[in-house]
Design a protein around this nucleic acid. Structure first.
Ligand SMILES: [Zn+2]
Ligand SMILES: [Zn+2]
Ligand SMILES: [Zn+2]
Ligand SMILES: [Zn+2]
Lengths: 130, 130
DNA sequence: TAACGTTTGTTATAATATAACATATTTGAG
DNA sequence: CTCAAATATGTTATATTATAACAAACGTTA
């Protein structure tokens, strides 16, 4: 079972950094940023990241191997994620669109596979970079 | 401009391996499989992979850091990809669904971003593993 | 308190990917 | 054809991302 609310020390430290960041953060960049707080090893970062993902507090942007805070309170614990990603400035924005989410959650593959989860990444140029 | 048809030697070798495979292949597993053909270094694999992706001959499964052959002749040069992925047996199947593709290709983000490309990964259990 | 699950700390290593540079091959404009 | 440009190759080294394995501490709660 996944913790409901309380975060452990390291989990809180990692989450704080990710939430404060303006864009996606990479694991080792998080590591370098928390060495002053006594976290020294990648394992400590990756363990915190894993738990935070399970809890739906953060998401991994697979195409970038980077992590963002969930800005979407009704995001169903990372079961249905969608992002828009700027190919120029690296900006990532979590898409919260009920229709899209419903459409994809009820999508059924012809070959009889029932999906439990999806992740969708859109790429383009953001307003600034256009 | 991207090559239309002809593949270079290394590109052909790498593509052959990926097309023959039953599931997604990782870069280093490709490397180990082609060392008898005189390819010795990761660079040679990654360069071939990059070109094959540009050409739309293969796709990268981002959540697995692995590569599959495109089975979808009308797949618009990797601009609109969707996959179903079994969480148990690792099977990957490229989804070719005109409606889904159209729906996502015409999806417009509220925040004014126009998308050039998307990648969608569905996760679940395939028929065998269910 | 005793037992259990979870978190932490730590060292080492595995797996994935790119940099940089030299050479070779292919292609196409003139 | 010929030379220049673009593309592809070979090679060594290194950067980046992620996990294994083990020991110790902490926080339940029965
Ligand atoms: Zn979310
Ligand atoms: Zn941008
Ligand atoms: Zn395809
Ligand atoms: Zn399966």
């Amino acid at each position: 079972m996944v913790q409901a609310q309380t975060l452990s020390r390291n989990q809180q430290i990692v989450l704080d950094i990710i939430e404060k960041a303006k864009g996606p953060l990479k694991a080792y960049s998080i590591l370098f940023n928390v060495q002053k707080k006594g976290i020294n090893a990648p394992q400590q970062i990756y363990r915190a990241l894993d738990k935070l993902i399970e809890m739906g507090k953060i998401h991994k942007i697979e195409s970038k191997n980077a992590f963002v805070a969930c800005r979407n309170s009704d995001c169903e614990i990372s079961k249905a994620t969608a992002f828009s990603i700027c190919e120029s400035c690296e900006m990532v924005d979590e898409i919260s669109d009920a229709k899209l989410s419903k459409y994809l959650s009820s999508f059924n593959h012809k070959k009889g596979m029932k999906f439990k989860r999806f992740n969708l990444e859109f790429f383009g140029l953001c307003k600034k970079c256009k």
